[in-house]
């Protein structure tokens, strides 16, 4: 989903930067507040950032014969809400833009908007909507949709900047969508499963923290303890 350096016309690049900036600024304040009010959550904050770091470095082959990578923003979204991920996701994108020539500085705003803003917020919506059906299913959807939504937004961004010569913007959505959409489905499943795995490990080992963050409910902490014993 990383739009390469220089591959958005200046007006588009600037517009996406303006769109993403308030979310990142608001996110920085959310991180500062989180750390000040609950210093013990620093460890899990680190885990959420690390998860995005490792997942977005892994390029995984997919059924369409191309490779792409997960985003890893679902975990932090579930643990800390989307504003925190606006910051952590942007840090990852900056790292990749500066050291790996993956993505870019001019496209940082657009990439941050898709991966660090849109993905986490859509994931959060899905998580909240399905939370009552259980922790695993809602976390899975959060992880998977963080991924799919990110690539969906990238498709739109590219289509707006590069309308198809014959089919216009709709044609371009279909074209870029065909590059990303099917490729991304198995990767979204991978991302969902891995997010569930890490949340299970945290719920098992650190139920008090997850209770405090509002991820677990009191009735569920005993259920996870029982599962461990059976």
């Amino acid at each position: 989903m990383h739009i390469a350096e220089g591959f958005l016309p200046p007006v588009h690049a600037a517009a996406w930067t303006v769109a993403a900036a308030p979310f990142v600024v608001h996110g920085v304040r959310a991180v500062v507040r989180q750390v000040r009010e609950d210093p013990d959550s620093k460890l899990l904050l680190g885990a959420a950032g690390a998860f995005t770091f490792v997942l977005s470095a892994l390029k995984i082959p997919s059924v369409t014969g191309s490779s792409s990578h997960p985003t890893g923003t679902g975990l932090g979204t579930v643990l800390f809400r989307p504003p925190v991920m606006a910051v952590l996701g942007t840090i990852v994108l900056l790292f990749q833009a500066l050291l790996l020539a993956h993505g870019g500085l001019t496209t940082l705003g657009a990439n941050a908007f898709s991966m660090a803003v849109a993905g986490p917020w859509i994931a959060y919506g899905a998580y909240r909507a399905t939370r009552r059906f259980g922790l695993a299913i809602s976390v899975f959807l959060a992880g998977a949709l963080a991924n799919l939504a990110t690539y969906g937004v990238t498709t739109l961004q590219l289509a707006l900047a590069f309308p198809d010569p014959t089919g216009g913007i709709a044609g371009a959505v279909a074209k870029f969508g065909s590059i990303f959409a099917i490729t991304q489905i198995p990767l979204a499943v991978v991302e969902g499963l891995l997010t569930v795995l890490v949340v299970r490990l945290l719920a098992h080992n650190s139920p008090k923290e997850l209770l405090r963050l509002g991820v677990l409910r009191r009735s569920e902490t005993t259920a996870t303890a029982e599962e461990a014993r059976s």
């Binding site: 460890l43 899990l44 680190g46 885990a47 950032g49 690390a50 998860f51 995005t52 770091f53 490792v54 997942l55 977005s56 470095a57 892994l58 390029k59 790292f95 990749q96 050291l99 790996l100 890490v198 490990l201 945290l202 080992n205 650190s206 923290e209």
Partner: peptide, 21 residues
């Protein structure tokens, strides 16, 4: 460099999981 990124992420994540355990 990609391996460095993955190693940093996996290292920190493993550390965090180790601490909570």
């Amino acid at each position: 460099l990609f391996a460095v990124q993955a190693a940093l992420g996996a290292g920190v994540l493993g550390y965090c999981l180790g601490v909570v355990r």
